[in-house]
Design a protein around this nucleic acid. Structure first.
Length: 310
DNA sequence: ACCTGTCAAGTCTGG
DNA sequence: CCAGACTTGACAGGT
C-alpha cells in the first residue's frame, strides 16, 4: 500500500511563477506574439517543474489552470500546433515517470449555472483542459465543484445533471467532483457522484469547515472509494490546514502534523493506494516539511517522497 | 522593498 | 437591477 503526496502550481523553491496575460493587456498589444511568448515561457517552466518533481521524487502534481492564458476567451483562437513538440516532450516525461497530473479550473466553470452563456463558457473551459491533456498526450482529470444553489439546491442539482449528461463522452470522462466549503457537503456531493458515475474527490479541509450534523467521514469513505472503482486511478484526497482559528477556510502555509497523521490513520484502514494533494500556501515546502516529520513516525516508511505501509 | 488596486469570467445577499 | 462581499494569484504602479 502506498500514498503519493502532491502539491500544486508554482513550486515555492524555484522562485519563479507561471505568467498571466489579462484581456486588456492583450488588446492593448501592438504585437500579439507576446501571448505566444508567454505560453512558451509557461511551458518551459512547466517542464522545469516536472524535472524538479522527478528529482525530488514527487509523483503527483496539479498544473496551473493558466498555462495557456486567455485560451477560453471566446474570440481568441490559438494555433496549438505551435506548442506540440515541447508539450509532447513534457508529456513523455510525465508518462515515463508514472506521474499523476491533475488540473483544477477556477470558479468560473459552473455546470449548475442558470445562465446559458456561463454554461457555454464552462463547457469551453472543460474542452480547453481536454485539449491541453491531449496536447501533452497524458490521461488526466479536472476537479470541479457542483457550484450554484440558486434558487434551490434541487433545481441547481437538476441543472448540473442535465448539463453533465449533455456533455460529449470524452469531456464527461475527465471530470471529478469535489465537496466545497460552504454549499455542498460531502454527502450531497457523494450522492450526485454516485448517480452520475463521477469519481469523488474528498476535500478533508472543506469537510472540517462545513459538514452536516452527524456526518462521519469514516462512514462515508467506503462509498467515496467505490466511486473510483471503474477508473484506473487511485482515490484522491485534498488536504490542507486552516490559517488560524479565526480564518478557518484560508489555507495555512504548512500542513498540521497531528491532523495529517489522524487522517492517515483513517484512510489507511482501507489498505489500498491513495493520492493526497496538499493545498498549502507553502506548496512543495509544506510537502517536504510534513514528509520530514513523518519520517520520525514509526508505522510508515518512506520511498522517495511516497509513504509506504507494510 | 512594500503596499494597493486590477483582472474575462463565478454566485449570493441586501438595498 | 445593481453594488458589494467573497475569492485566487500574478502583476503593475505608486509610495
Amino acid at each position: 500500500m502506498q500514498i503519493r503526496i502532491g502539491y500544486l502550481g508554482s513550486p515555492h523553491t524555484l522562485k519563479e511563477k507561471f505568467h498571466t496575460m489579462t484581456l486588456k493587456k492583450y488588446q492593448s498589444l501592438d504585437n500579439k506574439d507576446e501571448l505566444d511568448k508567454i505560453i512558451i515561457e509557461n511551458l518551459k517552466f512547466l517542464d522545469k517543474t516536472i524535472d524538479y518533481n522527478i528529482q525530488n521524487k514527487i509523483y503527483f502534481y496539479r498544473m496551473t489552470h493558466n498555462l495557456f492564458p486567455l485560451a477560453t476567451v471566446k474570440d481568441i483562437d490559438y494555433d496549438y500546433s505551435k506548442f506540440k513538440n515541447i508539450c509532447l516532450e513534457i508529456g513523455e516525461k510525465i508518462e515515463k515517470n508514472n506521474m499523476r497530473i491533475d488540473a483544477h479550473p477556477d470558479h468560473f466553470c459552473v455546470l449548475s449555472t442558470k445562465n446559458e452563456e456561463v454554461l457555454e463558457n464552462s463547457i469551453r473551459i472543460i474542452k480547453n483542459h481536454k485539449d491541453i491533456f491531449d496536447l501533452l498526450n497524458i490521461d488526466s482529470r479536472i476537479i470541479l465543484h457542483i457550484g450554484s444553489k440558486d434558487p434551490t439546491k434541487e433545481e441547481a442539482l437538476k441543472r448540473f445533471k442535465d448539463n453533465f449528461l449533455n456533455l460529449d463522452e470524452d469531456l464527461k470522462k475527465i471530470i471529478l467532483l469535489e465537496n466545497d466549503d460552504h454549499i455542498y457537503t460531502v454527502s450531497e456531493t457523494l450522492n450526485l457522484c454516485e448517480e452520475l458515475g463521477i469519481p469523488m474527490v474528498l476535500d478533508y479541509h472543506h469537510f472540517k469547515c462545513f459538514h452536516e450534523k452527524n456526518e462521519k467521514i469514516e462512514r462515508l469513505l467506503p462509498r467515496i472509494i467505490k466511486t473510483w472503482e471503474n477508473t484506473n486511478l487511485n482515490p484522491k484526497f485534498h488536504f490542507s490546514s486552516p490559517q488560524s482559528l479565526k480564518e478557518k477556510r484560508t489555507h495555512n502555509f504548512y500542513i498540521d502534523y497531528d491532523s495529517f497523521v489522524k487522517f492517515l490513520n483513517i484512510i489507511t484502514k482501507f489498505e489500498i493506494d491513495f493520492d493526497i494533494m496538499l493545498e498549502a500556501k507553502g506548496k512543495d515546502e509544506a510537502l517536504f516539511k510534513i514528509l520530514r516529520q513523518l519520517k520520525f513516525y514509526k508505522p510508515y516508511k518512506m520511498k522517495g517522497n511516497m509513504i509506504i505501509f507494510d
